[in-house]
Computed example of a mutant assay.
Amino acid sequence: MKAVLGPLAVCVATVSLGGCGYIFGDDGYFRDRGSDYQLAEVEPRMKVPEGVESKQVGDLLPVPGELKAQSGKFSTPRPQPMQAGIGGEDFSVQQDGSRRWLQAQRAPAESWALVKQFLADYQVSAAREMQDPGEIQTEWLAFDKQSDNPLVRRLLPAVSEGRRTDGQEQRLRIRIEPGVRSDTSEVHVLQMSRSEGSDQSDWPERSQDSKVESAVLAELETYLNQSSEEDVASLAATRIPVAQRSELVRDGAGNPVLRMNVDFNRAWAAVGGALERSEVVVSDINRSSGVYYVDLSQTASERERPGFFSRLFNRDQPEDEQAEPRLQVRLTEVGGEIQVSVDQGIETAADAEVARDLLTRVRDNLN
């Protein structure tokens, strides 16, 4: 019997090794395809036929000018995050129903500095500047008396038909808010008018002349897209950062919570980005319930994806045998603001010290 088992074991081992080569080798079904991109060919750029107008489109996935083939095994370089906006522009006007804003692929602090430079170049004085929120209110402009002002000249043709400019004065409120994505911002414009000599000062909920608002956003879009990288760098030293819109407080039960004065969409994106920058492992999410499930037993960089055989042999185990203890980072809308809490379950708060430490890490990585 032993004489038979020996050769049989050798045969099984040989077949197994050969089978592994067939499955995982260079010619195997699950071979490493990380270097395949080096064999790709660059196709000529598409040309638009003559006589057809087309907006120039930049390269969304630019390829380095020179690639050197490398022998042996190496780590495929990760692409750099794309910061260009639609059509290769960093600033673009967006509209949702009657709401309009300027979407900026820039951090709020950079957008703040550029908007201030825009007002300076167009000779519009700021009556009030507030860091929290990032807001600039202009002085009143008399369109009939300041027709030589650069901004007034651009806005006069946009005044709605039937609206007077004589005896009227206008002002703008420009607000810079954090965008939904990390390192982006939104620029909102509100316009109001009043009769000269009036003491009316309360801002309306919406612009009183939507066409003037649209013209200001369009002018901002053109101006900011023409601003070069050097312009941004030169303003970086003097830029005024948008203040944090979050505060670590305690709720009625004495549990630590992070209070955020933003809407849910921005809070959800900001907290997700902060958890990623904190290297907190997010094992699952439930956006409809506003919950990130996190694992604090290891950092994201320490966590390794299970191997093929580990996933294969563990897939039939009951879920509770594989699951690691998780905490819930929960976002709840309360009174027009968002409260971020750390829970052990839907009705059980996490340990106060653990929750405070995690919320502090989230707050410190929001921007």
Results as ranks from 00 to 15, higher is better:
residue 210 S to C: 02
residue 137 Q to H: 04
residue 235 L to Q: 03
residue 205 E to P: 00
residue 225 N to D: 09
residue 157 P to Q: 05
residue 125 S to G: 11
residue 210 S to R: 14
residue 133 P to M: 05
residue 181 R to T: 11
residue 234 S to R: 13
residue 103 Q to C: 01
residue 192 M to R: 10
residue 183 D to N: 14
residue 110 E to W: 02
residue 190 L to Y: 07
residue 133 P to I: 03
residue 142 A to L: 09
residue 237 A to E: 15
residue 200 Q to Y: 02
residue 114 L to W: 01
residue 184 T to W: 01
residue 135 E to G: 00
residue 144 D to G: 07
residue 113 A to I: 04
residue 106 R to K: 13
residue 124 V to S: 09
residue 153 R to W: 05
residue 212 V to K: 05
residue 111 S to H: 03
residue 220 L to N: 06
residue 124 V to N: 03
residue 200 Q to A: 15
residue 132 D to M: 12
residue 238 T to F: 03
residue 148 D to P: 00
residue 127 A to F: 06
residue 215 A to M: 07
residue 126 A to I: 13
residue 227 S to Q: 13
residue 167 G to I: 07
residue 164 R to D: 15
residue 123 Q to T: 11
residue 232 V to A: 13
residue 93 V to S: 05
residue 156 L to D: 04
residue 236 A to P: 02
residue 145 K to S: 15
residue 168 Q to W: 15
residue 116 K to C: 10
residue 220 L to D: 06
residue 135 E to C: 13
residue 96 D to M: 10
residue 97 G to W: 04
residue 122 Y to T: 15
residue 134 G to K: 02
residue 238 T to V: 12
residue 167 G to F: 04
residue 210 S to N: 09
residue 130 M to E: 15
residue 95 Q to K: 14
residue 166 D to I: 12
residue 240 I to S: 12
residue 193 S to W: 14
residue 220 L to W: 02
residue 183 D to W: 08
residue 192 M to P: 08
residue 233 A to E: 14
residue 140 W to A: 03
residue 108 P to L: 02
residue 129 E to A: 11
residue 191 Q to E: 15
residue 140 W to D: 06
residue 236 A to G: 08
residue 226 Q to N: 15
residue 154 R to S: 11
residue 129 E to L: 11
